[in-house]
Design a protein around this nucleic acid. Structure first.
Lengths: 364, 364
DNA sequence: CTGTTAGCGCGTTCAG
DNA sequence: CTGAACGCGCTAACAG
């Protein structure tokens, strides 16, 4: 004990073993829950560990086990400061902690070549057991890079989708649910507001597709504004005011499906400015949830995609893949669920706290 | 090469050395930029590395160097899905990547005992070189835990502040700047909207303090609504409507300092509902920036705290501490800066893209 | 149940 | 400039 302190050197199994009067291999067995350790011996070792303040040196362990108990997460820099991104990171971290694993993060920017991933400090050496990739807006051959890494991997929400080893939100279905919600409440003229920031990712066209399909399936007519080029629509600050006018006067819309909370919020402002009552004169619903939806004076319902659970599921899938690297796992699709009043998100019965979720589950 | 492939074993320095016809120690020297390697030899080794697809095994390296090239970040779970939190993580990750370091994340929930930090997978073994802590709403003796870890550390925005090894936003100054902005534009009756979610963190009282100080320094009267208990004010959905009425009718306010974008947004809705023109009849400014401020029909200026840079600075400070663990570094305070129209945040000249920032710097 | 021993991949002496 | 030899802390196979 003292010697180790004096040498400014962290105590090792050797120090613990010496103090406990056993061999270092016995200490190792004890630490790894090997049953071949007498109870009395174990107790002595436990004492010695407490006295020395011993902590295992992870690197030595992974050197021999060839396992790092660490999972990598590669993420798009532009997505981190997004509710979607943050919740995913949260879910991943949480699930990893539960299973005793560490999370190591790496970021890549939009439109950069996929090969930049290989140069991340995260991947320049062998230091992780598997990789979760949440990258879509990237150039070059991502699959080639991932293959070269030779690591168990899981994709989350990639561009284009994949049949295996992937977690994907069902954006088509989400938009359909949103449309159905409005139809069920008697609406027949329903407009759609696309993402106000340009995106090449599939979520935008998928939600558009869902909107059109649901409308057509109900024997209704899609309102055509959505297929105009975005630049034309977004030239001025008053885009949404203009849009509201066209939707109401030209097409007689009584309801709107917003691509997300952002668009819902902007549309809501347009309604207030124009003196249009929400939801009486113009009903609204959002695809997906963002925290802005908690700030509206009136509730704007939304179809919630649980990114936290997607993150957790990604970890679970990756763990299975690490166990059996050869086996491919069929892609998991995540469906949306209705939130009638997103403003309760942070409340005592809100969806943010896991305790609340746990209680809800208990009651059902 | 082939042998390594067949054995399904990753190539090591030995394999590279054999292929290059040199000793493994020469390969090691080459990899660590030791000048004692002949150019010709180096070229042979480079070839061999490319052929084998060799990647260093990090654990073996850190075992002998006793350095992990990895930094830990402990974060509050409830803060991850916050713009503030996300930007900080972004800044930390970015700066670490630049310096060739990995980021390992751990999360702890509000109000839990500080000792839970020790049980994080991140800290159960020796696996990081230093630790950044962004935890404030936590119970128990955090300092004792950190001391026990025996690691170089840096605090970010802790409750109460610290004289050393800490990064802190100057919330008092931010609120003062916000008030001054309104005073400079001729306002004399200025109200303050506190954080609508309860918080025990110092940012809330610090901003209140800044508001009061600035008002008094200008020889004006603070509007007293801010010191009422929050529960009383927030009982109903119409809090902000009520507040607006009181501010205007009872105190004759022409301007409001909002604690953050959230409160600004809610106040703005209240104005629209009441038919109060912004900023003509009621000017507003927010402390700190949140993405909701990009969604308003009219610009609400704000005093921006750059959390991205705070994250980067934290890494820089930690690196210095890792180099000289005995030396304490004086706390760094971050000041706010005015954003006149936060709606440009995401725009081509917005603050989000570093390229834009770089260009701006070039021009100045 | 416990101790002995070998070796994981790499960096660093120290001879040559 | 290069190679031989050693050891970092730990696990696992084997012998008792």
């Amino acid at each position: 004990l003292l010697r180790a302190e004096v040498r400014k050197k962290k105590p090792s199994v050797i120090d613990v073993a010496r103090l406990a009067g056993v061999d270092h291999s016995t200490v190792s067995r004890f630490l790894n829950n090997n049953p071949n350790v007498a109870v009395a011996t174990g107790e002595k070792i436990r004492q010695a560990i407490k006295m020395t303040g011993y902590k295992p040196f992870g690197s030595a362990r992974s050197l021999v086990l060839r396992r790092h108990e660490t999972v990598g997460l590669v993420f798009e820099k532009e997505h981190v400061n997004t509710f979607y991104g943050a919740r995913l990171i949260e879910g991943v971290t949480e699930k990893l902690s539960e299973t005793g694993n560490r999370l190591a993060m790496g970021m890549i920017r939009w439109y950069r070549p996929a090969t930049e991933i290989e140069d991340l400090p995260l991947l320049r050496m062998h230091s992780i057991d598997g990789l979760i990739l949440d990258v879509a807006q990237i150039s070059g051959d991502l699959d080639a890079v991932v293959y070269r890494l030779g690591l168990p991997y899981v994709y989350v929400n990639p561009a284009g989708g994949r049949p295996f080893n992937t977690i994907i939100p069902n954006d088509v279905s989400v938009a359909k649910m949103a449309v159905q919600y409005l139809i069920d409440r008697g609406h027949r003229k329903i407009g759609y507001i696309p993402c106000y920031k340009e995106t090449q990712h599939s979520s935008q066209p998928d939600r558009m597709k869902g909107y059109v399909e649901a409308i057509l399936q109900a024997g209704l007519q899609p309102v055509p504004l959505w297929d105009k080029p975005l630049e034309e629509i977004h030239k001025e600050d008053s885009d949404y005011d203009l849009r509201l006018k066209i939707y109401r006067q030209e097409y007689g819309c009584t309801a709107i499906v917003a691509n997300s909370g952002t668009e819902a919020l902007r549309m809501l402002f347009a309604c207030y400015k124009a003196g249009v009552k929400v939801p009486a004169e113009m009903a609204m619903i959002g695809c997906d949830f963002t925290p802005t939806m908690t700030e509206t004076p009136v509730p704007i319902p939304c179809i919630h995609l649980d990114r936290l659970k997607m993150g957790q599921r990604a970890v679970q899938m990756l763990m299975e893949r690490i166990k059996e690297p050869e086996r491919d796992i069929p892609t998991v699709y995540f469906e949306g669920s209705l939130i009638e009043d997103p403003r309760n998100w942070y409340g005592p019965k809100g969806l943010l706290t896991d305790e609340a979720e746990a209680n809800e589950n208990k009651n059902t």
